[in-house]
Computed example of a mutant assay.
Amino acid sequence: MAISEAQLETWNKLGPTAQFTSTYEALRDVLNDSSSPYWPKSFEIFLQGSYKNSTNVYGDSDVDVVIRLDSIFYTDLYFLSEEEKQRYNSQRTEGNYSLEEFKTSVISWLTKKYGNDVQPGNKAVFIKGNGTSRRDADVLICAKLRRYYSFPEFGQPHYVDGICFFLPSGIRIENFPEKHAENCTTKHQDTRQWFKPTVRIFKNLRNTMIKNKIIEDGLAPSYFIEGMLYNVPPTKFGGSEQMNFKDVLNWLLSADRDKFVCANEQFKLLGGAHVTWPAANCTQFLNAVKSYNDAA
């Protein structure tokens, strides 16, 4: 027994996008308004998440928008030698504007435009949809991050651009959404356009299992499902829908998942950090997928 070809074909389809596109465009226009108090600063606005990566399915609700302050940037020097760190620190200059000031200005502006529909949270600012033209949205207010891998005496340093923000506790969270999106697109091409439909199948199956109370909501966030499938070799994708699903699932079940990386390739996928997936949750999810498929 297995999930039918027809069901998998239904699940691999892209979810509706028109209302989410209009929500993003309207919110981008508000954030990019020259009347805002932060307008003179350098910043970038872009999508992240399922709608950015074309892995959205029916049931996805929030539009994830990033507004990133570029007037300053934070650094991750973990991979530099002590000599390279000293060289970097000798050349750095202090910024005269803070992420906290930027965040305060953005929230003030959003509240002016959307009133009580704006609800600041620990990570992002939630903007409630109006039930007609605007969907729910999460706005992540962050700063540019550079993770340095080399800082030579001569020549150009090597770094990867990302984002960072701070939790109320003061913990700094780093992530690399643009690298994530870029790598997922490359993976999609390398798998002959099978990667993103396969992500949508696993997401739809997750939603079905949540609805049927087989797993708890929150066990397998979309970001981690994308990261998990990113580690599957391109040769395992393809064939019929059933063959593709079976080969991908069997490889995941037998793989050494401790070696998995996030799709941005900047972190391990599994672990206990804020940007990693608890290994037990990944195992529980895959076992539930296998049981569901076996019983179908």
Rank of each mutant, 00 (worst) to 15 (best):
F195S: 15
L99V: 08
S291F: 00
V63H: 04
L167I: 09
A2Y: 08
I215F: 02
R147E: 13
L27A: 12
G121A: 06
L47I: 05
D256Y: 01
E153V: 05
F79E: 12
V30Y: 04
E82Y: 06
T132C: 03
E101W: 07
V57R: 03
N183Y: 10
I45V: 14
I72L: 09
T235W: 00
L269K: 03
K196N: 09
C184I: 10
Y38H: 04
F195N: 15
P40C: 11
N116V: 01
N293C: 08
E226K: 01
K236Q: 13
F165K: 08
Y78A: 14
K259T: 14
S291I: 01
S98H: 05
R192E: 12
K259Y: 04
F79D: 14
S42A: 13
E100M: 04
T132A: 15
L249S: 13
C262P: 00
E153F: 02
V66P: 01
L31V: 05
G59Q: 04
H158T: 14
L27I: 11
D29F: 03
A18F: 06
L269T: 07
E5M: 05
E100K: 10
E100Q: 12
S50C: 05
W277Y: 12
V65P: 10
R257D: 11
D33A: 09
K203H: 01
F79A: 12
D136W: 01
T132E: 12
S105Q: 14
R200P: 04
F154G: 08
A18C: 00
V160R: 11
F245D: 15
E241Q: 10
N32L: 06
I107R: 15
T208N: 07
Y74Q: 07
K196F: 02
L286Q: 09
N89A: 10
N264R: 00
S71L: 01
L145T: 03
T276H: 01
L145V: 02
T104I: 01
N212V: 00
E101Y: 03
L69K: 07
M1E: 14
T21E: 11
L110P: 10
D247A: 10
E83D: 13
S105G: 02
M1C: 10
F202T: 02
S98F: 05
V160L: 08
Y97C: 09
K103R: 15
Y88T: 05
F285N: 07
L110W: 07
K203V: 00
A255L: 02
L252W: 02
F126I: 04
P120G: 07
D161C: 08
A279Q: 11
S254I: 00
V139Y: 03
G239D: 09
K113A: 12
N32Q: 12
K290A: 14
L140S: 14
W11R: 11
I163E: 15
I127C: 06
L145C: 05
N231I: 02
R147N: 11
T104Q: 12
Q91T: 06
Q193A: 15
V199L: 01
G239S: 09
C164T: 11
E182D: 13
Q189D: 13
R172Q: 14
F43Y: 15
F102L: 08
H180N: 15
F202Q: 03
N130T: 08
N287F: 02
F166S: 15
L27M: 15
E84H: 06
L99A: 07
D62L: 03
C164A: 13
P233L: 00
I127V: 13
Q119D: 09
L286R: 08
V275R: 10
D256L: 01
V139Q: 06
P234D: 13
